[in-house]
Design a protein around this nucleic acid. Structure first.
Lengths: 230, 230
DNA sequence: CCCATTCCTTGATGTGCGTCAAGCTGCGCC
DNA sequence: GGCGCAGCTTGACGCACATCAAGGAATGGG
């Protein structure tokens, strides 16, 4: 029982949110944290479930999505290792409005609401970091709304490809972006159907701007890609 | 100079965010707050402007929107008296990504970033309220994303009409919802063109579910309206 | 009283994207 | 090896919506 806790504490300590805490301060937080080993495809929570903490991805991958009454699904976010989800709901007395499901075998940490609230009480710096985290999330969501409202499917795909690239501002030479998961999931994240996504990539290949090999997308002409509008 | 400050303080004290503060505690906050009298149509800030605080609407009305490169506009939010906007950006070192413009002659309060940060430092309860506020905003935005992704224009309009109604759960008798502003702005908020919005309302009238008189929409059959899908 | 302006409606036409339905391709597995 | 399946592509078709283009219908100002 104490072995996992050590790992937990070490992982928590590596996060921006907890980085500046002394080991003694970290201990109560680690005590309120549970490890979850979740195989691929498992549902972590459903819309309507109550929320009593937030989740962190140590390794693996998680998707956040809503399900329409007709059963179709829209992916809101693909959560990578080192990132968290479900914080916002801790501060409201409402159940989840999205569902969370693993896309790969994953190790998650669940940090209980109570220890977060206690830490906010104790350390204003922590509160500030929490506020910054939520703000970043909000910012991203507004960008999504913007993209959905006034960009075409092609523009969203192009934007996504360019954003995946850290060195975007660097030299224009070709480089490879690897899609984090299946094309169908990425398509849903970008609010297009898998069929349409496939056609968009096809058109970009025809235009000589990218090359596609499975989940690897080679960006051939970042500059022209940025200006491409279908 | 001291007259306005009194009013300011009184107004701040009436907000959930500051409600529990003693007058002496409120004073430094009021000192970091400036009144802005803004005539209708004026731009409060543009995308790209730096952010050094957040805004509160005392009276009047403000729209938050982004402008596409082609010049078209998408309204993200219509801010009513008693509500605030621009908090999220205080906690990040980024400029605004939306623009804010008054839809009516308005009185706004601008609370400087510095006093907010100081108050977070001083009072964990305040930090919690701030977190709750951001969380509510985030929640709303996710609902918007959901609506944009998997509802039709008609469904969004119907949802909006039903949501505007506080007594929705009460008796099914007819009652009136008044649109907060022009139909074109409401249409943009719901991500449809004014033309399409007009047609949707027309269809709902034809179906005998609502009656429209200018900005007044009389809900005749809330139950059937909820089930209507075009 | 008329003209202008703003706001809204209505019609005709176009199109981006979804849907449905086959194929195709690679990969694991008996 | 070949069967089966998941993931992806391709084509044909249709629809929800946008766009373009004219009118009305209020409102206000000279």
């Amino acid at each position: 029982m104490s072995r996992p806790k050590i790992k937990t504490q070490a992982f928590l300590a590596s996060l921006p949110l907890f980085k500046e805490l002394a080991p003694a301060e970290l201990e109560p937080i680690a005590a309120g944290t549970t490890e979850l080993h979740v195989p691929r495809g498992e549902i972590i929570f459903n819309r309507g479930d109550p929320c009593d903490g937030f989740h962190l991805v140590v390794y693996g991958q998680v998707k956040l999505a809503f399900i329409s009454p007709q059963g179709s699904e829209k992916v809101v976010e693909i959560v990578a290792p080192g990132y968290s989800f479900g914080e916002a709901l801790m501060f409201m007395e409402k159940p989840y409005i999205v569902m969370a499901q693993t896309l790969a075998d994953s190790l998650l940490l669940h940090v209980a609401k109570a220890v977060v609230f206690a830490e906010i009480e104790r350390d204003p710096k922590f509160a500030r970091k929490m506020l910054a985290g939520l703000s970043r999330r909000l910012h991203g969501l507004i960008s999504d709304v913007e993209a959905y409202s006034l960009q075409s499917g092609t523009e969203r795909v192009v934007g996504y490809l360019l954003r995946q690239d850290a060195q975007e501002t660097a030299e224009p030479g070709p480089y490879v972006v690897t899609l984090p998961t299946s094309k169908a999931i990425v398509a849903s994240r970008l609010n297009v159907t898998p069929e349409h996504f496939s056609r968009i990539l096809h058109d970009l290949v025809e235009a000589g701007l990218i090359a596609v090999d499975g989940r690897d997308v080679r960006i051939l002409e970042a500059g022209k890609l940025r200006d491409y509008h279908g």
